[in-house]
Design a protein around this nucleic acid. Structure first.
Length: 483
RNA sequence: GGCUCCAUGGUCAAGAGGUUAAGACAUCGCCCUUUCACGGCGGUAACCCGGGUUCAAUUCCCGGUGGAGUCACCA
Protein backbone atom coordinates (compact mmCIF):
# COMPACT_ATOMS: atom_id res chain seq x y z
CA UNK A 1 0.00 0.00 0.00
CA UNK A 2 1.30 3.38 -0.90
CA UNK A 3 1.71 6.04 1.69
CA UNK A 4 -1.12 8.49 1.90
CA UNK A 5 -0.33 12.02 0.82
CA UNK A 6 -2.83 14.82 1.21
CA UNK A 7 -2.47 18.50 0.70
CA UNK A 8 -3.96 21.74 1.78
CA UNK A 9 -3.88 24.11 -1.15
CA UNK A 10 -5.15 27.53 -0.16
CA UNK A 11 -5.18 30.68 -2.20
CA UNK A 12 -3.60 33.65 -0.51
CA UNK A 13 -6.60 35.90 -0.81
CA UNK A 14 -7.39 36.75 2.78
CA UNK A 15 -8.58 35.17 5.94
CA UNK A 16 -9.06 31.46 6.31
CA UNK A 17 -12.67 30.55 5.75
CA UNK A 18 -13.97 28.03 8.26
CA UNK A 19 -14.94 25.77 5.37
CA UNK A 20 -11.32 25.79 4.28
CA UNK A 21 -10.18 25.24 7.80
CA UNK A 22 -12.33 22.16 8.07
CA UNK A 23 -11.15 20.88 4.72
CA UNK A 24 -7.56 21.37 5.81
CA UNK A 25 -8.30 19.71 9.11
CA UNK A 26 -9.92 16.68 7.51
CA UNK A 27 -7.04 16.30 5.09
CA UNK A 28 -4.70 16.58 8.03
CA UNK A 29 -6.61 14.05 10.12
CA UNK A 30 -6.79 11.57 7.27
CA UNK A 31 -3.04 11.71 6.82
CA UNK A 32 -2.06 11.70 10.45
CA UNK A 33 -4.44 8.86 11.15
CA UNK A 34 -2.78 6.81 8.45
CA UNK A 35 0.75 8.02 9.10
CA UNK A 36 1.06 9.76 5.76
CA UNK A 37 2.29 13.14 4.57
CA UNK A 38 0.47 16.43 4.75
CA UNK A 39 1.56 18.97 2.21
CA UNK A 40 1.05 22.70 1.99
CA UNK A 41 0.85 24.21 -1.46
CA UNK A 42 0.17 27.86 -2.13
CA UNK A 43 -2.14 28.44 -5.07
CA UNK A 44 -1.37 31.99 -6.06
CA UNK A 45 -2.26 31.86 -9.71
CA UNK A 46 -4.70 34.72 -9.44
CA UNK A 47 -2.54 37.80 -9.54
CA UNK A 48 -5.48 40.13 -9.14
CA UNK A 49 -6.68 38.78 -5.85
CA UNK A 50 -3.27 38.28 -4.36
CA UNK A 51 -2.15 40.67 -1.69
CA UNK A 52 0.90 41.17 0.45
CA UNK A 53 0.69 39.35 3.75
CA UNK A 54 -1.91 36.83 2.69
CA UNK A 55 0.62 34.04 2.71
CA UNK A 56 1.61 34.94 6.25
CA UNK A 57 -1.99 34.53 7.33
CA UNK A 58 -1.89 31.00 6.01
CA UNK A 59 1.27 30.14 7.89
CA UNK A 60 0.05 31.73 11.07
CA UNK A 61 -3.34 30.08 10.94
CA UNK A 62 -1.89 26.64 10.31
CA UNK A 63 0.46 27.09 13.19
CA UNK A 64 -2.18 28.26 15.60
CA UNK A 65 -4.58 25.52 14.66
CA UNK A 66 -1.86 22.95 15.05
CA UNK A 67 -1.93 21.70 11.48
CA UNK A 68 1.72 20.94 11.04
CA UNK A 69 2.74 19.98 7.53
CA UNK A 70 5.47 17.68 6.33
CA UNK A 71 6.21 19.52 3.13
CA UNK A 72 5.63 23.08 2.04
CA UNK A 73 7.30 26.20 0.71
CA UNK A 74 9.56 26.32 3.74
CA UNK A 75 9.91 22.57 4.05
CA UNK A 76 11.15 20.95 0.92
CA UNK A 77 10.15 17.37 0.35
CA UNK A 78 11.58 16.98 -3.11
CA UNK A 79 8.54 17.75 -5.22
CA UNK A 80 8.73 21.54 -4.99
CA UNK A 81 8.47 24.34 -5.51
CA UNK A 82 5.34 24.46 -3.37
CA UNK A 83 4.15 27.82 -4.59
CA UNK A 84 2.38 27.80 -7.92
CA UNK A 85 3.70 31.11 -9.15
CA UNK A 86 7.18 29.66 -8.70
CA UNK A 87 6.22 26.45 -10.38
CA UNK A 88 4.91 28.43 -13.28
CA UNK A 89 8.30 30.00 -13.85
CA UNK A 90 9.67 26.55 -14.53
CA UNK A 91 7.24 26.28 -17.40
CA UNK A 92 5.58 23.06 -16.30
CA UNK A 93 2.00 24.17 -16.73
CA UNK A 94 2.54 25.33 -20.27
CA UNK A 95 4.47 22.20 -21.03
CA UNK A 96 1.63 19.96 -19.87
CA UNK A 97 -0.97 22.11 -21.55
CA UNK A 98 0.84 21.82 -24.86
CA UNK A 99 0.99 18.09 -24.35
CA UNK A 100 -2.77 18.09 -24.31
CA UNK A 101 -2.93 20.34 -27.34
CA UNK A 102 -0.76 17.82 -29.08
CA UNK A 103 -3.18 15.06 -28.21
CA UNK A 104 -6.19 17.08 -29.29
CA UNK A 105 -7.42 17.20 -25.70
CA UNK A 106 -6.92 20.95 -25.57
CA UNK A 107 -6.70 23.80 -28.03
CA UNK A 108 -5.63 27.38 -28.48
CA UNK A 109 -8.36 29.94 -28.22
CA UNK A 110 -7.98 33.51 -29.42
CA UNK A 111 -11.45 34.74 -28.67
CA UNK A 112 -11.42 38.12 -27.03
CA UNK A 113 -13.47 39.34 -24.15
CA UNK A 114 -16.01 41.00 -26.40
CA UNK A 115 -16.78 37.81 -28.23
CA UNK A 116 -17.16 35.86 -25.00
CA UNK A 117 -19.44 38.50 -23.58
CA UNK A 118 -21.53 38.43 -26.72
CA UNK A 119 -21.83 34.69 -26.32
CA UNK A 120 -23.21 35.22 -22.84
CA UNK A 121 -25.54 37.94 -23.96
CA UNK A 122 -26.88 35.85 -26.80
CA UNK A 123 -27.64 32.90 -24.62
CA UNK A 124 -31.35 32.24 -24.61
CA UNK A 125 -33.38 33.10 -21.54
CA UNK A 126 -32.77 30.69 -18.75
CA UNK A 127 -29.80 29.24 -20.54
CA UNK A 128 -26.23 29.62 -19.57
CA UNK A 129 -23.66 30.27 -22.21
CA UNK A 130 -21.00 27.72 -22.81
CA UNK A 131 -17.99 28.31 -24.91
CA UNK A 132 -18.93 27.34 -28.47
CA UNK A 133 -15.63 25.70 -29.41
CA UNK A 134 -15.22 28.43 -32.01
CA UNK A 135 -11.43 28.21 -31.98
CA UNK A 136 -11.34 24.45 -32.11
CA UNK A 137 -11.81 24.65 -35.85
CA UNK A 138 -8.84 26.91 -36.42
CA UNK A 139 -6.33 25.43 -38.84
CA UNK A 140 -2.76 24.92 -37.89
CA UNK A 141 -1.79 27.79 -40.17
CA UNK A 142 -4.28 30.17 -38.61
CA UNK A 143 -2.99 29.31 -35.15
CA UNK A 144 0.60 29.81 -36.21
CA UNK A 145 -0.27 33.14 -37.75
CA UNK A 146 -2.11 34.31 -34.65
CA UNK A 147 0.75 33.29 -32.44
CA UNK A 148 3.28 34.93 -34.68
CA UNK A 149 1.22 38.10 -34.61
CA UNK A 150 1.40 38.04 -30.85
CA UNK A 151 -2.33 37.70 -30.42
CA UNK A 152 -3.29 36.93 -26.82
CA UNK A 153 -4.53 33.42 -26.32
CA UNK A 154 -5.75 30.94 -23.76
CA UNK A 155 -5.63 27.18 -23.87
CA UNK A 156 -8.90 25.40 -23.40
CA UNK A 157 -9.74 21.86 -22.50
CA UNK A 158 -11.49 20.02 -25.30
CA UNK A 159 -14.44 18.15 -23.87
CA UNK A 160 -16.51 15.94 -26.15
CA UNK A 161 -19.98 17.24 -26.78
CA UNK A 162 -21.61 13.92 -26.14
CA UNK A 163 -21.43 11.07 -23.69
CA UNK A 164 -21.01 11.19 -19.95
CA UNK A 165 -18.21 11.35 -17.45
CA UNK A 166 -18.19 9.44 -14.18
CA UNK A 167 -15.96 9.77 -11.18
CA UNK A 168 -15.97 8.19 -7.79
CA UNK A 169 -16.11 10.01 -4.51
CA UNK A 170 -15.55 8.32 -1.17
CA UNK A 171 -18.45 10.14 0.42
CA UNK A 172 -20.91 10.52 -2.41
CA UNK A 173 -20.22 7.42 -4.42
CA UNK A 174 -20.25 7.42 -8.21
CA UNK A 175 -21.30 10.66 -9.80
CA UNK A 176 -22.07 10.92 -13.50
CA UNK A 177 -22.42 14.12 -15.46
CA UNK A 178 -23.41 14.59 -19.08
CA UNK A 179 -20.50 15.96 -21.11
CA UNK A 180 -22.63 18.54 -22.80
CA UNK A 181 -22.87 20.26 -19.43
CA UNK A 182 -19.14 20.58 -19.13
CA UNK A 183 -17.67 23.77 -20.48
CA UNK A 184 -14.36 23.83 -22.31
CA UNK A 185 -12.63 25.38 -19.37
CA UNK A 186 -9.56 27.54 -19.66
CA UNK A 187 -6.37 25.76 -18.66
CA UNK A 188 -3.85 28.49 -19.32
CA UNK A 189 -4.92 32.09 -18.97
CA UNK A 190 -3.86 34.85 -21.33
CA UNK A 191 -1.37 36.08 -18.76
CA UNK A 192 0.33 32.72 -18.98
CA UNK A 193 -0.76 31.57 -15.55
CA UNK A 194 -2.60 28.29 -15.24
CA UNK A 195 -6.12 28.34 -13.86
CA UNK A 196 -6.77 26.75 -10.51
CA UNK A 197 -8.54 23.91 -12.27
CA UNK A 198 -5.51 23.00 -14.31
CA UNK A 199 -2.72 23.71 -11.87
CA UNK A 200 -4.50 21.67 -9.30
CA UNK A 201 -4.60 18.56 -11.40
CA UNK A 202 -1.04 18.89 -12.63
CA UNK A 203 0.35 19.60 -9.19
CA UNK A 204 -1.61 16.93 -7.40
CA UNK A 205 -0.26 14.44 -9.88
CA UNK A 206 3.31 15.69 -9.79
CA UNK A 207 3.33 15.86 -6.03
CA UNK A 208 1.99 12.38 -5.65
CA UNK A 209 -1.18 13.38 -3.83
CA UNK A 210 -3.22 10.26 -3.13
CA UNK A 211 -6.29 11.79 -1.47
CA UNK A 212 -7.87 15.02 -2.59
CA UNK A 213 -10.00 16.53 0.13
CA UNK A 214 -12.10 19.52 -0.81
CA UNK A 215 -15.43 21.18 -0.30
CA UNK A 216 -18.39 19.87 -2.18
CA UNK A 217 -18.76 23.09 -4.14
CA UNK A 218 -16.21 21.36 -6.37
CA UNK A 219 -18.46 18.42 -6.99
CA UNK A 220 -19.85 19.87 -10.17
CA UNK A 221 -16.49 20.68 -11.67
CA UNK A 222 -14.94 17.38 -10.67
CA UNK A 223 -15.91 15.62 -13.93
CA UNK A 224 -13.75 18.08 -15.82
CA UNK A 225 -10.81 17.11 -13.68
CA UNK A 226 -11.56 13.49 -14.33
CA UNK A 227 -11.38 14.19 -18.05
CA UNK A 228 -8.10 15.94 -17.53
CA UNK A 229 -6.64 12.96 -15.73
CA UNK A 230 -7.92 10.73 -18.47
CA UNK A 231 -6.47 12.99 -21.14
CA UNK A 232 -3.07 12.74 -19.52
CA UNK A 233 -3.46 9.07 -18.81
CA UNK A 234 -2.86 9.70 -15.13
CA UNK A 235 -4.36 7.81 -12.24
CA UNK A 236 -6.96 9.76 -10.37
CA UNK A 237 -6.58 10.42 -6.66
CA UNK A 238 -9.14 9.31 -4.11
CA UNK A 239 -11.71 12.06 -3.80
CA UNK A 240 -13.17 13.10 -0.50
CA UNK A 241 -15.71 15.87 -0.96
CA UNK A 242 -16.82 17.39 2.31
CA UNK A 243 -20.35 18.61 2.88
CA UNK A 244 -20.94 22.31 2.93
CA UNK A 245 -20.93 24.42 6.07
CA UNK A 246 -23.86 26.80 6.03
CA UNK A 247 -25.19 29.73 7.99
CA UNK A 248 -28.46 29.79 9.91
CA UNK A 249 -30.27 30.39 6.64
CA UNK A 250 -28.79 27.20 5.25
CA UNK A 251 -26.76 29.12 2.72
CA UNK A 252 -23.09 28.62 2.16
CA UNK A 253 -21.29 30.37 4.99
CA UNK A 254 -20.26 33.80 3.76
CA UNK A 255 -18.56 36.88 5.10
CA UNK A 256 -21.96 38.33 5.81
CA UNK A 257 -22.46 35.98 8.72
CA UNK A 258 -19.72 37.77 10.61
CA UNK A 259 -18.00 34.60 11.67
CA UNK A 260 -17.05 32.99 8.40
CA UNK A 261 -13.33 33.01 8.99
CA UNK A 262 -11.03 31.59 11.57
CA UNK A 263 -9.69 35.04 12.34
CA UNK A 264 -13.21 36.38 12.89
CA UNK A 265 -13.75 33.73 15.51
CA UNK A 266 -10.49 34.41 17.26
CA UNK A 267 -11.31 38.11 17.36
CA UNK A 268 -14.63 37.25 18.92
CA UNK A 269 -12.86 35.56 21.78
CA UNK A 270 -12.88 31.93 20.77
CA UNK A 271 -9.86 29.80 21.53
CA UNK A 272 -7.98 27.82 18.88
CA UNK A 273 -8.65 24.41 20.31
CA UNK A 274 -12.36 25.03 20.61
CA UNK A 275 -12.63 26.23 17.04
CA UNK A 276 -10.72 23.25 15.72
CA UNK A 277 -12.71 20.84 17.87
CA UNK A 278 -15.99 22.36 16.84
CA UNK A 279 -15.20 22.47 13.16
CA UNK A 280 -14.08 18.85 13.23
CA UNK A 281 -17.53 17.88 14.42
CA UNK A 282 -19.27 19.70 11.61
CA UNK A 283 -19.87 16.84 9.23
CA UNK A 284 -18.31 14.06 11.20
CA UNK A 285 -18.61 12.43 14.59
CA UNK A 286 -16.64 9.73 16.38
CA UNK A 287 -18.05 6.30 17.19
CA UNK A 288 -18.26 6.99 20.88
CA UNK A 289 -19.94 10.32 20.38
CA UNK A 290 -17.35 12.20 22.36
CA UNK A 291 -17.65 15.95 21.86
CA UNK A 292 -14.67 17.51 23.58
CA UNK A 293 -11.65 16.07 21.81
CA UNK A 294 -7.99 16.92 21.68
CA UNK A 295 -6.19 16.97 18.38
CA UNK A 296 -4.60 13.66 19.24
CA UNK A 297 -7.98 12.12 20.00
CA UNK A 298 -9.30 13.44 16.71
CA UNK A 299 -6.41 11.89 14.84
CA UNK A 300 -6.97 8.53 16.44
CA UNK A 301 -10.71 8.50 15.97
CA UNK A 302 -10.98 10.06 12.54
CA UNK A 303 -12.44 7.90 9.83
CA UNK A 304 -13.16 9.80 6.65
CA UNK A 305 -15.57 7.18 5.43
CA UNK A 306 -17.93 8.37 8.09
CA UNK A 307 -18.08 11.96 6.93
CA UNK A 308 -21.69 12.88 6.38
CA UNK A 309 -23.23 13.95 3.10
CA UNK A 310 -25.61 16.63 4.18
CA UNK A 311 -24.66 20.21 4.85
CA UNK A 312 -24.15 21.37 8.43
CA UNK A 313 -25.33 24.63 9.93
CA UNK A 314 -22.60 26.50 11.74
CA UNK A 315 -24.24 26.82 15.14
CA UNK A 316 -22.35 29.53 16.94
CA UNK A 317 -24.35 28.81 20.06
CA UNK A 318 -22.81 25.40 20.36
CA UNK A 319 -19.37 26.79 19.63
CA UNK A 320 -19.87 29.20 22.51
CA UNK A 321 -20.72 26.34 24.79
CA UNK A 322 -17.70 24.39 23.65
CA UNK A 323 -15.49 27.42 24.05
CA UNK A 324 -16.74 27.79 27.61
CA UNK A 325 -15.71 24.20 28.25
CA UNK A 326 -12.23 24.95 26.96
CA UNK A 327 -11.96 28.06 29.08
CA UNK A 328 -12.85 26.05 32.17
CA UNK A 329 -10.11 23.60 31.35
CA UNK A 330 -7.45 26.24 30.75
CA UNK A 331 -4.74 26.57 33.31
CA UNK A 332 -4.95 29.75 35.30
CA UNK A 333 -1.99 31.55 33.80
CA UNK A 334 -3.15 30.99 30.24
CA UNK A 335 -6.59 32.02 31.25
CA UNK A 336 -5.41 35.21 32.90
CA UNK A 337 -3.39 36.15 29.87
CA UNK A 338 -6.56 36.19 27.81
CA UNK A 339 -8.91 37.46 30.48
CA UNK A 340 -6.94 40.32 31.99
CA UNK A 341 -7.08 42.57 28.94
CA UNK A 342 -10.86 42.22 28.94
CA UNK A 343 -11.02 42.96 32.66
CA UNK A 344 -8.98 46.10 32.11
CA UNK A 345 -11.49 47.30 29.58
CA UNK A 346 -14.12 47.60 32.26
CA UNK A 347 -12.11 48.22 35.40
CA UNK A 348 -9.53 50.99 35.60
CA UNK A 349 -9.52 51.49 39.35
CA UNK A 350 -6.75 49.80 41.34
CA UNK A 351 -8.60 46.67 42.29
CA UNK A 352 -7.09 43.20 42.19
CA UNK A 353 -7.76 42.44 38.56
CA UNK A 354 -6.54 38.87 38.80
CA UNK A 355 -9.06 38.15 41.50
CA UNK A 356 -11.79 39.68 39.40
CA UNK A 357 -10.67 37.63 36.44
CA UNK A 358 -10.69 34.41 38.41
CA UNK A 359 -14.24 35.09 39.49
CA UNK A 360 -15.20 34.77 35.84
CA UNK A 361 -13.45 31.59 34.87
CA UNK A 362 -16.15 29.03 34.45
CA UNK A 363 -18.82 31.63 33.94
CA UNK A 364 -17.96 32.98 30.54
CA UNK A 365 -18.22 31.43 27.12
CA UNK A 366 -16.01 33.87 25.28
CA UNK A 367 -13.63 36.47 26.67
CA UNK A 368 -15.50 39.52 25.42
CA UNK A 369 -18.34 38.50 27.74
CA UNK A 370 -16.21 39.82 30.56
CA UNK A 371 -16.54 43.61 30.56
CA UNK A 372 -20.29 43.77 30.85
CA UNK A 373 -20.22 41.31 33.74
CA UNK A 374 -17.84 43.30 35.89
CA UNK A 375 -18.55 46.92 35.06
CA UNK A 376 -20.09 47.35 38.50
CA UNK A 377 -16.64 47.22 40.09
CA UNK A 378 -15.73 50.40 38.31
CA UNK A 379 -18.90 52.29 39.06
CA UNK A 380 -21.89 51.39 41.17
CA UNK A 381 -24.80 51.36 38.76
CA UNK A 382 -27.89 53.40 39.50
CA UNK A 383 -30.11 50.48 40.34
CA UNK A 384 -33.74 50.14 41.25
CA UNK A 385 -34.39 49.07 44.84
CA UNK A 386 -36.82 46.48 43.55
CA UNK A 387 -33.91 44.16 43.06
CA UNK A 388 -33.57 43.88 46.83
CA UNK A 389 -36.64 41.67 46.72
CA UNK A 390 -35.90 38.01 46.38
CA UNK A 391 -38.81 35.62 46.63
CA UNK A 392 -37.01 32.56 47.87
CA UNK A 393 -35.01 34.45 50.46
CA UNK A 394 -38.05 36.46 51.41
CA UNK A 395 -36.11 39.66 51.22
CA UNK A 396 -37.73 43.02 50.47
CA UNK A 397 -36.98 46.70 50.87
CA UNK A 398 -37.87 46.77 54.56
CA UNK A 399 -35.85 43.86 55.87
CA UNK A 400 -33.00 44.69 53.51
CA UNK A 401 -32.86 48.17 54.97
CA UNK A 402 -32.83 46.68 58.43
CA UNK A 403 -30.03 44.28 57.61
CA UNK A 404 -27.88 46.93 55.98
CA UNK A 405 -28.48 49.44 58.76
CA UNK A 406 -27.49 46.90 61.38
CA UNK A 407 -24.47 45.72 59.45
CA UNK A 408 -23.09 49.15 58.61
CA UNK A 409 -21.60 49.91 62.05
CA UNK A 410 -20.08 46.42 62.21
CA UNK A 411 -18.43 46.93 58.87
CA UNK A 412 -17.26 50.36 59.94
CA UNK A 413 -15.61 48.89 62.99
CA UNK A 414 -14.00 46.01 61.23
CA UNK A 415 -10.65 46.36 59.56
CA UNK A 416 -10.44 42.84 58.31
CA UNK A 417 -11.63 42.99 54.73
CA UNK A 418 -10.22 39.67 53.72
CA UNK A 419 -12.60 37.08 52.38
CA UNK A 420 -12.50 35.25 55.68
CA UNK A 421 -12.94 38.37 57.74
CA UNK A 422 -16.00 39.46 55.82
CA UNK A 423 -17.35 35.97 55.92
CA UNK A 424 -16.94 35.76 59.67
CA UNK A 425 -18.56 39.11 60.26
CA UNK A 426 -21.56 38.15 58.18
CA UNK A 427 -22.01 34.61 59.41
CA UNK A 428 -21.76 35.81 63.00
CA UNK A 429 -24.48 38.33 62.30
CA UNK A 430 -26.61 35.70 60.61
CA UNK A 431 -26.20 33.34 63.54
CA UNK A 432 -27.06 36.06 66.00
CA UNK A 433 -30.18 37.08 64.19
CA UNK A 434 -31.13 33.50 63.42
CA UNK A 435 -31.94 34.32 59.83
CA UNK A 436 -31.19 32.49 56.61
CA UNK A 437 -27.86 33.16 54.92
CA UNK A 438 -29.51 34.65 51.94
CA UNK A 439 -31.50 37.12 53.94
CA UNK A 440 -28.34 38.96 54.83
CA UNK A 441 -26.13 38.05 51.93
CA UNK A 442 -28.56 39.00 49.24
CA UNK A 443 -29.06 42.62 50.32
CA UNK A 444 -25.37 43.08 50.98
CA UNK A 445 -24.45 41.80 47.56
CA UNK A 446 -27.05 43.99 45.92
CA UNK A 447 -25.81 47.02 47.79
CA UNK A 448 -22.17 46.55 46.93
CA UNK A 449 -22.79 45.57 43.31
CA UNK A 450 -26.01 47.24 42.31
CA UNK A 451 -26.74 44.21 40.19
CA UNK A 452 -29.11 41.34 40.45
CA UNK A 453 -26.60 38.86 39.19
CA UNK A 454 -22.87 39.07 39.58
CA UNK A 455 -19.85 36.87 39.33
CA UNK A 456 -19.01 36.03 42.90
CA UNK A 457 -21.05 36.75 45.99
CA UNK A 458 -20.97 39.35 48.73
CA UNK A 459 -17.71 38.13 50.28
CA UNK A 460 -15.75 38.12 47.07
CA UNK A 461 -17.03 41.46 45.91
CA UNK A 462 -16.40 43.24 49.19
CA UNK A 463 -12.95 41.79 49.46
CA UNK A 464 -12.09 43.23 46.07
CA UNK A 465 -13.74 46.59 46.66
CA UNK A 466 -12.11 47.07 50.04
CA UNK A 467 -13.43 48.78 53.13
CA UNK A 468 -13.91 52.32 51.96
CA UNK A 469 -15.76 51.59 48.76
CA UNK A 470 -17.80 48.81 50.34
CA UNK A 471 -18.98 51.14 53.07
CA UNK A 472 -19.76 53.87 50.58
CA UNK A 473 -21.92 51.50 48.57
CA UNK A 474 -23.72 50.16 51.62
CA UNK A 475 -24.53 53.71 52.70
CA UNK A 476 -25.88 54.46 49.25
CA UNK A 477 -28.00 51.34 49.51
CA UNK A 478 -29.41 52.47 52.82
CA UNK A 479 -30.23 55.90 51.40
CA UNK A 480 -31.92 54.38 48.38
CA UNK A 481 -33.97 52.06 50.57
CA UNK A 482 -35.10 54.85 52.84
CA UNK A 483 -36.72 56.69 49.98
C1' G B 1 -33.36 27.52 -15.83
C1' G B 2 -29.68 23.07 -16.97
C1' C B 3 -26.71 19.81 -14.28
C1' U B 4 -25.28 17.68 -9.55
C1' C B 5 -25.91 16.70 -4.54
C1' C B 6 -28.72 16.38 -0.03
C1' A B 7 -33.21 15.15 3.32
C1' U B 8 -33.75 11.91 11.48
C1' G B 9 -36.11 17.20 16.88
C1' G B 10 -34.79 24.50 16.26
C1' U B 11 -29.21 23.00 15.48
C1' C B 12 -25.13 19.21 15.34
C1' A B 13 -25.58 14.08 15.12
C1' A B 14 -26.06 8.20 16.09
C1' G B 15 -28.80 4.30 14.27
C1' A B 16 -30.86 -0.30 12.26
C1' G B 17 -35.25 -3.99 7.56
C1' G B 18 -38.49 -5.50 13.53
C1' U B 19 -35.35 -0.16 18.79
C1' U B 20 -39.12 2.73 24.32
C1' A B 21 -35.31 6.20 17.44
C1' A B 22 -29.05 7.44 21.19
C1' G B 23 -26.13 11.64 22.69
C1' A B 24 -24.78 17.03 22.54
C1' C B 25 -26.21 22.44 21.96
C1' A B 26 -30.46 25.41 22.61
C1' U B 27 -35.10 25.55 25.40
C1' C B 28 -38.29 24.44 29.85
C1' G B 29 -38.73 22.63 35.00
C1' C B 30 -36.64 20.89 39.64
C1' C B 31 -32.43 20.32 43.10
C1' C B 32 -27.85 22.40 44.95
C1' U B 33 -25.91 27.25 45.94
C1' U B 34 -25.07 33.95 49.24
C1' U B 35 -27.22 35.72 43.13
C1' C B 36 -26.06 34.28 38.24
C1' A B 37 -23.30 30.55 36.37
C1' C B 38 -21.30 25.68 37.18
C1' G B 39 -22.95 20.85 38.60
C1' G B 40 -26.93 17.11 39.22
C1' C B 41 -31.82 15.31 37.82
C1' G B 42 -35.94 15.46 34.63
C1' G B 43 -39.31 17.40 30.56
C1' U B 44 -40.88 19.26 25.54
C1' A B 45 -39.24 18.18 20.64
C1' A B 46 -37.57 14.33 14.83
C1' C B 47 -37.46 9.85 10.85
C1' C B 48 -40.55 15.42 4.17
C1' C B 49 -44.70 13.23 1.00
C1' G B 50 -46.56 9.26 -2.32
C1' G B 51 -45.95 4.65 -4.51
C1' G B 52 -43.17 -0.09 -4.81
C1' U B 53 -40.24 -4.46 -2.64
C1' U B 54 -41.09 -7.19 2.06
C1' C B 55 -44.43 -10.90 6.91
C1' A B 56 -42.38 -6.04 8.37
C1' A B 57 -39.69 0.23 6.04
C1' U B 58 -38.12 5.89 9.00
C1' U B 59 -34.08 2.37 7.03
C1' C B 60 -33.91 -0.60 0.27
C1' C B 61 -35.95 1.16 -4.89
C1' C B 62 -38.72 4.76 -7.89
C1' G B 63 -41.31 9.36 -8.25
C1' G B 64 -42.64 13.97 -6.11
C1' U B 65 -41.63 17.98 -2.87
C1' G B 66 -38.26 20.88 -0.38
C1' G B 67 -33.29 22.69 0.35
C1' A B 68 -28.39 23.52 -1.36
C1' G B 69 -24.23 23.76 -4.72
C1' U B 70 -22.57 24.96 -9.48
C1' C B 71 -22.75 26.94 -14.31
C1' A B 72 -15.61 32.85 -14.94
C1' C B 73 -9.19 33.97 -18.28
C1' C B 74 -11.96 33.08 -9.05
C1' A B 75 -10.35 29.52 -6.39
Amino acid sequence: MTKIRTRYAPSPTGRMHVGNLRTALYAYLITRHAGGDFILRIEDTDQERYFEGAVDIIYRTLEKTGLDYDEGPDKDGGVGPYVQSERMKTGIYMKYALQLVEKGEAYYCFCDKERLERLHAEAADGEVAKYDKHCLSLTKEEIEANLAAGKPFVIRQNIPAEGTTTFHDEIYGDITAPNEELDDMVLIKSDGYPTYNFANVVDDHLMGITHVVRGNEYLSSAPKYTRLYAAFGWEEPVYVHCPLITDEEHKKLSKRSGHSSYEDLIEQGFVNEAVVNFVALLGWSPENNQEIMTKQELIEAFDYKKISKSPAVFDIQKLRWMNGEYIKQMDDEDYLMRALPEVSKAVTKPYDLRKIAMLLKGRIEVFPDIPSMIDFFEELPDYDTEIYAHKKMKTNSENSLEVLTELLPRFEESDDYSFEGIQKLLTDYIAEKEIKNGQALWPVRIAVSGKQSTPGGAYEIMEILGKEESLRRIRIGIEKLKQ
